[in-house]
Design a protein around this nucleic acid. Structure first.
Lengths: 197, 197
DNA sequence: CGTCTATTTGAATGTACTCAAAAGCGGTGG
DNA sequence: CCACCGCTTTTGAGTACATTCAAATAGACG
């Protein structure tokens, strides 16, 4: 498995020396998972923060009736996990599951605390990473509040064209907050408009 | 104005020496704002991150039709601003406005960069702060996706009873993503149920 | 080719919105 | 102290949007 993408992801925001990179990699756990496999189950403690080397995943909340509500997708060069559970080491609200076969680079909570001490810059890296995720979720809330259903769909496809190919439509519906049937109807309506224009 | 709440807010997550506290306070700008006053206008660059000493504020997105969509409220002991604009120093997506008269402790972008260098622990503090905000927004997305309108309202009141008294109902409606009329109807329905039980 | 799962379609229903009007409430001035 | 004004909340009727449920169709995989 290629850890190069991990290092270049980190180097987007901080510069590590060769020694620091080695130290980091010595703590990284590389693992493969199969499509459908769970990386984290809601209720368990999130022991690892995961960097995606290849494949795709989803994190979701399972409500009282057992319905999944997708919080986020992740593909190559993204991080995924339940950050709330990870940082507090309390039971997770969310479940993380592979959509495709995946290769992940995992950092355990203990190892990350160790790295924060040895390489304080890592603190900066995860601050920036969290800030970006925070801004993304803010945007998502606003999109939910201010866009029409059709706009939400078009916005998603425009922002994440990579996902449209790799994520089944019913998952996209869950992410956007509609039923699969309704998303199907939206898509139909949009394709009619394209034919006319 | 009392900066004690600022220091005790920070000391929840990191320990500062007296010297560090002094250095921090020397960079803090204390300011008063009146009800209705804007702290940040969408499109401007967010120059300050704000800690609320007293009063209440809202941050919101104004859509193309001019409608406000409230992203967050803030009261005493909370932080508010447009973190995306602040960290990138690019134009803000959101507007921040006082709901009541406010006393704020402001930290400028430049001063915060300086503090990160002089007191690296501050980096840790803002990482933790951002993580908590991130977890909060995640929860909000899931609540939006998984709860009924009535549940969303009850959930809000339960989680933030402080706000129910201080925030007009039409702002709460905006935050929850309903029209004011609809929120009024939900409240009526709930109060009927209480009478019966 | 057959099976399983995902997507599409349609009818009926329910949820939330729009618009318009009335009622409530706080502040100000006569 | 009351009357009036402006703003918020309530109420109701009609409408639009999104869901549910059931069934048909399409795709993927062995």
């Amino acid at each position: 498995m290629n850890t190069g993408t991990l290092l270049s992801n980190i180097s987007k925001h901080i510069n590590l020396t060769l020694k620091e990179e080695e130290l980091l990699l010595s703590k990284v756990r590389l693992r493969k998972f199969l499509k459908g496999q769970y990386i984290l189950q809601g209720g368990d403690i999130c022991k690892y923060i995961n960097f995606v080397i290849s494949g795709s995943l989803k994190s979701f909340y399972r409500d009282i009736e057992g319905h999944e509500h997708i919080l986020a997708f992740a593909i190559e060069d993204w991080w995924i996990g339940d950050l709330g559970s990870f940082t507090t080491q309390k039971p997770a609200d969310y479940t993380v599951q592979c959509i495709e076969n995946c290769e992940l680079a995992q950092l355990s909570y203990e190892d990350l605390q160790f790295l924060y001490k040895e390489i304080p810059k890592m603190e900066r890296f995860f601050r920036i990473l969290t800030q970006k995720a925070y801004v993304y979720f803010q945007r998502r809330i606003i999109d939910n509040l201010s866009l029409t259903a059709k706009e939400k769909y078009l916005n998603f496809v425009k922002q994440y064209p990579q996902f449209e190919q790799r994520v089944p439509q019913y998952m996209m519906a869950s992410y956007l907050g509609f039923t699969p049937e309704f998303l199907s109807k939206i898509r139909k309506e949009i394709s009619f408009k394209h034919l006319k224009s």
